[in-house]
C-alpha cells in the first residue's frame, strides 16, 4: 500500500510539473509554428518572468498571483519589440540565422541578469503557498497546484485565442501562407511581432509560476530551453495542444526517474525522451506535428 501511494504521489508530482512545462513550452511551439523561428532565448524569458515575480514580491510586496498579469504585459512588450526591431530582419533567412540571433539574445539576457542581480539563488517565501491539500494519502502542495491550474488555463486560453478570435485567425492564416494573408489585408510583420509577444508573455508567466516553488537565478533559463524544446518535440512541432501531452510525458518521466532511479537526472531524461521520439515518432506523441 505504501508503494502504491508512493507511485501515485510520483505520478501526481509529474503531472503537476508537466502542466507548468506545457505552459513554459507553448510559446516556443507558437513562435516556431507561425514564424519558423526556433527561439534559443526561450528559457531566458522564463528566467525574466520568474525574476519579475520575485522582485515585485520582494521589493514591493505584491501578491505573487497579482504579478502574473504584470509579467505577461512586460514580456509581451519585450517579445513584440525583439521581433519587430530585430527578428523581422531575419524573415526569409535560413533557420540558422534566427537561431544564432536568438542565441545572442540569450547571452545578453543572462549576462545582464548576472550583472544586475548576481548569481545568487533566490526563493520567495509566500505564507499561503506553504500549505498543502491532502487527498487520501497524496500530498498536493498548494504552490504547485496553483501553478498547474494557471499554467494549463493559460495554454487553453491561448488555444482559444488562436481558434476563436479575429487575431487568432490572422495568426493562423499568416502561419499557413503569409503572402496570401497579406493579400487579405494582414501585415505579416505585425502578426509576427504579436506572435512573438504572445509567446514571450506566456513563457514569462510560466516563469512566474515556476518562481512560486523553485529558486530563481540568472542561469536557470538554459534548462527550460531544453525542457521546452523536448516538450514541443514530444507533443509535435507546431501543434499547440501537443504541449500538454508533451509536458505530462516529460513531467511524469522525470518524476519516475527521481523516485525510482536517482534524483538529478532530469536533463538526461529530457534528452532520452527526445531521442526516443525523434527516432520512433517524429511527428510527436499524437502524430500531429510537422516533420521536415
Amino acid at each position: 500500500m505504501d508503494q502504491l501511494a508512493a507511485f501515485g504521489q510520483t505520478v501526481l508530482n509529474g503531472l503537476l510539473q508537466g502542466g507548468v512545462y506545457a505552459a513554459a513550452a507553448v510559446g516556443l511551439s507558437l513562435i516556431f509554428g507561425v514564424s519558423g523561428i526556433l527561439n534559443a532565448a526561450h528559457g531566458e524569458l522564463v528566467m525574466l518572468g520568474a525574476f519579475t515575480t520575485y522582485w515585485l514580491f520582494k521589493l514591493h510586496g505584491v501578491d505573487p498571483l497579482l504579478t502574473l498579469p504584470i509579467s505577461f504585459v512586460l514580456l509581451f512588450g519585450l517579445g513584440y519589440l525583439l521581433q519587430f526591431l530585430v527578428l523581422n530582419r531575419t524573415l526569409g533567412a535560413p533557420l540558422l540565422v534566427s537561431l544564432l540571433v536568438t542565441f545572442g539574445m540569450s547571452l545578453v539576457m543572462v549576462n545582464t541578469a548576472l550583472r544586475v542581480w548576481s548569481a545568487d539563488y533566490r526563493m520567495m517565501a509566500v505564507p499561503y503557498f506553504d500549505r498543502s491539500v491532502y487527498v487520501g494519502p497524496l500530498i498536493v502542495p498548494l504552490s504547485r497546484l496553483t501553478a498547474f491550474v494557471i499554467g494549463l488555463a493559460m495554454v487553453g486560453g491561448l488555444y482559444w485565442l488562436l481558434q476563436r478570435t479575429e487575431l487568432g485567425r490572422m495568426i493562423r492564416a499568416t502561419a499557413q501562407d503569409w503572402e496570401m494573408a497579406s493579400l487579405m489585408g494582414v501585415n505579416p510583420r505585425f502578426v509576427y511581432a504579436v506572435t512573438f509577444g504572445l509567446g514571450a508573455a506566456t513563457t514569462g508567466v510560466a516563469g512566474s509560476l515556476v518562481a512560486f516553488y523553485t529558486p530563481v537565478e540568472p542561469n536557470m533559463g538554459l534548462t527550460y530551453t531544453l525542457f521546452a524544446f523536448s516538450v514541443v518535440v514530444l507533443g509535435g512541432m507546431g501543434y499547440i495542444p501537443g504541449v500538454v501531452w508533451g509536458g505530462f510525458a516529460l513531467g511524469i518521466a522525470q518524476a519516475m526517474t527521481e523516485t525510482y532511479v536517482e534524483a538529478g537526472l532530469s536533463l538526461l531524461v529530457a534528452f532520452f525522451l527526445l531521442y526516443l521520439i525523434l527516432r520512433f515518432m517524429p511527428a510527436g506523441i499524437m502524430g500531429k506535428g510537422r516533420v521536415e
Binding site: 479575429e166 485567425r169 490572422m170 493562423r172 492564416a173 499557413q176 496570401m180 494573408a181 487579405m184 489585408g185
Partner: peptide
C-alpha cells in the same frame, strides 16, 4: 486558389472580410 488549408471554410471566408 491558395486557400488556408488548415482553416475551416468559414474561417477562410472570414479572413476575406478583414479589410
Amino acid at each position: 486558389a491558395r486557400v488556408f488549408p488548415e482553416m475551416s471554410v468559414l474561417d477562410n471566408l472570414r479572413m476575406g472580410a478583414l479589410v
